[in-house]
Each structure stands twice: as structure tokens, then as C-alpha cells.
């Protein structure tokens, strides 16, 4: 009997915040469905997932990094660069014209992430300042490659990405990525190392964890996820825009924080981030629905971030 109780309290300790945030998400969905009868239709849910896809990818990447106690403000830059690179290289006419661009974009994402990671680990620089600087570099590169929005995407590829398998393709992609990331963070030694570094870098180091390698991999994986976001965006909007990444870094932070990951690292769950992304998406959706100008989205997102941070700060104070 006693054993069971201990287990329960531990379960709640571990997953309590994730459960609360999902509770909130479902409440929000119900609330929206009161005003929008078509909310729970398959088409709308597919739409919701499709429009949230890029942020889901970036958010999962940001979560990896925040778990180490770091931060990456340049993720939006990588998304934009991914979008631009992917579209520029695309050959809409050749049947396999999407293969090379996708591969190159993925490699580019890895390289950008590794670049951040190397500066932070080998250069021993603060993540904020490195990624502020690389934001300028990535944004600049994207703009250099494509000064004006445009380009076109391989048709079949775009359709397969966004609507393939009867519209289940994005869902499948999302589930596979989520499964892999969550397995990494919650069920594999790497995740423990990630969290240990976030909790106490010194403790991790003296326990024999290769701190630099673990961190580098986190930044690199985040870069890769941003490249996937960039590719997906290309398929979704059928063109490229060098400024498309602007708000991703911040929204990804918001989603991560709303999802219950502590800014100080160690504590958090990618599943929570997913809920965070959907909450942001639904609120934006709702604002559109009520005909509120899109300008309010900025205020809203900023407020969500601050409120979520305040909550987690107050929670910490009380515990």
C-alpha cells in the first residue's frame, strides 16, 4: 500500500505538469469548439497540425537545448535558411528533383547547429551571445541567397509532405520525430546526461559525462530539426521567404516554457512542448476566428511567455 503511494506521488512529481498542461490544452480546445463548430472536424485538426508542424519541430529542438540549461535564439534563422536553400535548389520538373535539396538542407541544418554548438562548447561562450550573433549570420545568408521571396517547389513532393497518405503524412512525420526525441530525452542515457548538465554542469563533469559532446549534439540536433521545419515550410507555402523565421526562436521558447520545461534546465518533457505549441496555435487560431487583427498575436505571444515564466517562477518559490 505504502509502496503504491510513493509510486503515485513520484509519477505526479514527474508528469504532473505535463498532465496539467494537457488538461489546459483540452479545455482550450473545448472552449474554442463552443465558438467554432467545425473545430473538431478532421479537416480542421489536419489544418491545425499542418500549420503547427514547423513550430513543433523547432520547439522540440529548443527543448533539447533548454534541458541542458542553454538557449538558442538562432533557430529561426536556421528555419529561414532551410526554407531558402531547399527552394533554391529545387528542380520542380525533374521527378526526383526534391531529393538533393532535401538532403542538402538537412546537412545545412546539421552544420548550422554544429556551428552554434562548437562556439558554445569549444569556445566556452555564452549561448545567448553566440546565437544572437549567428542569428545575424543565418538571416543574412538567407537574405543573400534569396533577397526577395519567391521560387517554386516540386509539386509532387509538396503534396506528399503536406497531404500525402490521405493527409496523414505530416502526422506520421510528427509522430516519428516526437517518438525519437522523447525516447532520447526520457528513455536513453543521453537524456539523463542532457538533464544532468542542465542540473549541474560540474556534477555531470565529475561523474564522467562528456559534457561538451552531449551539448554539441543537442545544438546539432536542434539545427537538424529546424532544417526539417524549413523543408516542411517550403512544401507548405510552395515558395521561400528569407524573413520567414523571425518569430520561431521566441515562439519555440514560449512553447517550451509553457510546456513545463524549466529555463534553468534539467526538468521538462518534449511532450509538454508539443502541448505548448498547440496552445499557441489554437490561441492564434482563435484570434483569427474572432476577427482580431494579427497584430494582437504579438501581444498575446509575449504575454503567454511572460505569464508562463511567472507561473514557473512562482511555483519554484513555493516549493
Amino acid at each position: 500500500m505504502k509502496k503504491k503511494n510513493v509510486f503515485d506521488s513520484n509519477f505526479f512529481q514527474k508528469h504532473g505538469h505535463t498532465m496539467i498542461i494537457y488538461g489546459f490544452l483540452f479545455a482550450l480546445m473545448l472552449f474554442v469548439s463552443l465558438f467554432n463548430e467545425s473545430f473538431f472536424t478532421l479537416g480542421n485538426l489536419k489544418n491545425l497540425l499542418r500549420s503547427s508542424m514547423p513550430l513543433l519541430m523547432v520547439g522540440l529542438g529548443q527543448t533539447l537545448i533548454i534541458l541542458t540549461g542553454g538557449i538558442d535564439l538562432s533557430l529561426g534563422g536556421i528555419v529561414a535558411l532551410g526554407n531558402v536553400v531547399c527552394v533554391t535548389l529545387m528542380d520542380p520538373d525533374s521527378p526526383a528533383g526534391f531529393l538533393m535539396p532535401v538532403a542538402v538542407t538537412l546537412l545545412m541544418g546539421l552544420a548550422c547547429g554544429a556551428c552554434n554548438g562548437l562556439m558554445i562548447t569549444k569556445g566556452r561562450l555564452a549561448p545567448i551571445i553566440v546565437t544572437i550573433a549567428t542569428t545575424a549570420v543565418f538571416d543574412g545568408l538567407a537574405l543573400l541567397i534569396m533577397p526577395k521571396p519567391g521560387g517554386s517547389v516540386h509539386r509532387a513532393f509538396a503534396r506528399a509532405m503536406t497531404r500525402g497518405l490521405g493527409g496523414a503524412a505530416p502526422l506520421l512525420l510528427f509522430l516519428v520525430v516526437l517518438f525519437l526525441i522523447r525516447r532520447l530525452t526520457n528513455h536513453m542515457p543521453y537524456g539523463k546526461a542532457l538533464r544532468a548538465i542542465g542540473g549541474s554542469e560540474n556534477a555531470a563533469y565529475s561523474t564522467g559525462i562528456r559534457v561538451e559532446r552531449v551539448k554539441l549534439l543537442a545544438y546539432t540536433l536542434a539545427g537538424l530539426l529546424c532544417a526539417i521545419a524549413g523543408i516542411f515550410l517550403s512544401a507548405q507555402i510552395n515558395s521561400a521567404d528569407a524573413t520567414i523565421g523571425k518569430n520561431y526562436a521566441m515562439n519555440a521558447i514560449t512553447a517550451t516554457v509553457v510546456g513545463g520545461t524549466a529555463m534553468t534546465g534539467a526538468v521538462g518533457d518534449p511532450l509538454g512542448t508539443v502541448a505548448g505549441v498547440f496552445i499557441i496555435a489554437i490561441i492564434n487560431n482563435m484570434l483569427n476566428l474572432f476577427g482580431v487583427s494579427s497584430f494582437y498575436q504579438f501581444v498575446c505571444q509575449g504575454l503567454i511567455l511572460i505569464v508562463a515564466l511567472s507561473f514557473s517562477a512562482l511555483r519554484k518559490k513555493h516549493s
Binding site: 521558447i253 529555463m263 497584430f295 494582437y296 498575436q297 501581444v299 509575449g302 511567455l305 511572460i306
Partner: peptide, 12 residues
């Protein structure tokens, strides 16, 4: 992150 959030609100 605080100033980032506030900055976004100000922008809105």
C-alpha cells in the same frame, strides 16, 4: 527571455 517577451508585447 523577460526582455524578449516584453519586446514582443511592445511590438504588438
Amino acid at each position: 527571455i523577460m526582455t524578449l517577451g516584453v519586446g514582443t508585447v511592445v511590438q504588438g
